[in-house]
């Protein structure tokens, strides 16, 4: 049976690769140190595959047909998409192995458990996976199964729904009949409002409050207190990327360790890196 060997979450803002050096030096140093720490911990867990949760930025699906969740089932993932290479300062494409067998299992077993996972044999990649892979999987050595969610075109899934899907995914992974070591990685957030009236704003107060909830490790309290409305108030159409973190939360128990937090207006996103040491 498969085993969950690590769980982490990080911001994926394009500024982390595209205009990293425009942030204050202290923020650059904090981010770099935390990302190095995440990579070391990920490598130490010796995963066979990264199960990644992020969100699609209207790249893979047109606005007239946006699935709630989508799994990339290809044998290989190539990115970033052409539209994003200049934006992310990634002139060269990366090629990361997929785990088609696990990905297709998630789609089919999900359907049996009443979750509709759309799938793509050739998923396109924006900052959601490209930025975290750049820092955490720089040699493209660890295969990736990407699951993207919709958190920007209404209706956006509620935190309770995201957690429920996370729990089901956890049960599915544990029932997967292979001796696979799975690392869970959530990407997105923290507060930001991409393209909205508060495009340059970061809600430090919300971010610190949310991270404090993660540090408490009480999942039910977090789900009670951190509503979609609160996320939207802290930055509409972007802060809800934290729903990916809530999916990852379902794979953990106990408190999260916050490696770093920066209210990085230069990167146009509250920027944080978190790891959990206890798996559910």
């Amino acid at each position: 049976m498969a085993q969950i060997v690590s769980a982490m979450a990080m911001t994926h803002s394009p500024g982390l690769t595209g205009w990293f050096d425009r942030a204050p030096m202290q923020q650059q140093l904090l981010a770099k140190k935390a990302l190095d720490e995440m990579r070391w911990r990920l490598e130490a867990a010796k995963p066979d595959v990264i199960l990644g949760f992020s969100n699609d930025h209207l790249l893979n699906w047109p606005i007239n047909n946006v699935p709630e969740f989508t799994v990339g089932i290809g044998d290989e993932h190539v990115g970033p998409a052409d539209w994003y290479d200049e934006w992310l300062a990634m002139a060269t494409k990366y090629r990361i192995p997929g785990d088609s067998r696990l990905a297709r299992y998630i789609v089919n077993e999900g359907a049996r458990r009443r979750i509709a996972f759309a799938y793509l044999r050739q998923m396109q990649f924006d900052d959601g996976f490209s930025v975290p892979m750049h820092y955490l999987n720089p040699y493209n050595a660890i295969p990736l199964v990407p699951i993207s969610m919709n958190c920007t075109v209404p209706p956006i899934p509620l935190p309770t729904r995201s957690y429920e899907v996370g729990v089901t995914l956890r049960e599915m992974i544990k029932a997967y009949p292979e001796n696979t070591r799975v690392a869970v990685l959530a990407t997105g957030g923290l507060s930001h409002e991409p393209g909205g009236p508060r495009y340059f704003w970061v809600d430090e107060e919300f971010d610190l409050w949310f991270l404090e909830l993660l540090k408490r490790g009480d999942h039910q309290a977090l789900l009670r207190e951190c509503t979609l409305e609160k996320m939207e108030a802290a930055g509409s159409g972007g802060t809800a990327e934290l729903l990916a973190w809530i999916m990852a939360l379902a794979f953990t128990s106990g408190p999260a360790e916050v490696l770093a937090y920066m209210p990085a207006i230069a990167w146009r996103s509250g920027t944080g890196m978190v790891v959990w040491s206890e798996m559910a």
Partner: peptide, 17 residues
Amino acid sequence: HQYYVPQMLRLFYGAAM
């Protein structure tokens, strides 16, 4: 969609940095 607005501006002005 608000996410598309900066993307439109990128088409006019470019995306680097």
